[in-house]
């Protein structure tokens, strides 16, 4: 941990600097106003969520709100419970206490397929594309719940099935494939695509669900600078053009601090901060979580010394 602290300090520093770069762009596209949670009815509410695995508490009394049309990010050190939180909201884990409300409705007991139908879409940390299918087929699967072809229609194909398929194809091509710039790979099997392209296809598939809220689990993990900027651009466009609320887990501080309207910080399964990026950055609890306890200025001293010596 001690060896990581200089890196994390510089990461935060870089984040503060990078903020100025992309902030201008963001102000351009989003109109510059930060969305204040609480003024409008939240689209997603998590309340008093506790999740235990045997004796280990993955989440302890976590509660926050996601405003509609916002980009909210969940951050926290590794093992803080971010993916567990996502899995609980998706419906794979049952919380021992707490409620989850989507557009005012309590969905704590709803099963995952039903949550998808309500408008909750999600991507996974490890790419969860269907390797036996092409890009196009993967994307079309996103629309599954909204289609109405049944078995008999499917077996005969000509008639309702074909009509639905053609409509689907047209919409997918015009709205999604063009939007995410993946038209050149539409017929390729997903297993041969590069990591960055696969992530984009996953997002395309999530978009095909016509979601109201898009949950992205580490959307830029493993990407280089250029790919990260592309993805950031897509996320902003998704929010602006499609009106989709974005809830994401991310480690790339530059992207987080700059893109988000609202940041939620988890540590050891507990919520330790909740507010705008600026508020969260200044929060001493957050700094302690990332850098460990100890005087920050003293650590800075030590950092300068090590750097001077030639570390």
């Amino acid at each position: 941990m001690a060896r990581d602290t200089p890196l994390l300090v510089s990461a935060l520093a870089l984040a503060i600097n990078a903020q100025h770069e992309l902030a201008a762009r963001k102000r351009q596209s989003a109109g510059g106003d930060k969305v204040h949670p609480g003024k409008v009815n939240p689209i997603l509410e998590v309340e008093g969520l506790t999740l235990s695995f045997g004796g280990i508490k993955a989440l302890s009394d976590v509660g926050f709100e996601v405003a509609p049309g916002s980009i909210t990010t969940v951050i926290g050190p590794n093992g803080a419970g971010k993916t567990s939180l996502f899995n609980t909201i998706s419906g794979f884990y049952k919380p021992s206490t707490g409620r989850i409300r989507f557009e005012g409705e309590d969905i704590t007991a709803t099963r995952p397929p039903a949550r998808a139908k309500l408008g909750l879409a999600r991507s996974f940390q490890n790419i969860a594309l269907f390797r036996g299918m092409t890009v196009l087929d993967n994307i079309k699967l996103g629309r599954h719940t909204h289609l109405r072809t049944n078995v008999l229609d499917a077996l005969f194909y000509f008639g309702r099935a074909r009509r639905e398929e053609m409509e689907l194809r047209q919409e997918v091509e015009e709205r999604i494939i063009d939007f995410l710039e993946i038209d050149h790979i539409r017929h390729m099997p997903v297993s041969v695509l590069s990591y960055g392209l696969q992530k984009r296809v996953e997002m395309a598939r999530a978009l095909a669900m016509r979601p109201k809220i898009l949950m992205l689990d580490e959307p830029v993990a493993g990407m280089n600078r250029e790919e990260t900027e592309d993805m950031a651009r897509f996320i902003l466009d998704v929010r602006d053009e499609w009106g989709v609320t974005v809830l994401m887990v991310e480690h790339d501080m530059g992207m987080v601090m700059d893109l988000s309207d609202h940041v939620v910080v988890l540590n050891f399964g507990k919520l330790i901060a909740d507010g705008t990026p600026a508020e969260v950055q200044a929060n001493p609890e957050v700094i302690k979580a990332y850098l460990g306890s100890g005087d920050v200025s003293e650590l800075r001293e030590r950092l300068h010394q090590t750097v001077a010596v030639g570390g």
């Binding site: 995952p112 039903a114 998808a116 969860a128 594309l129 699967l141 599954h144 669900m209």
Partner: peptide, 11 residues
């Protein structure tokens, strides 16, 4: 291919 993803997509 991946039934968990399928569930998440609403199947």
């Amino acid at each position: 291919d991946r039934d968990i993803s399928a569930e998440v997509l609403g199947i």
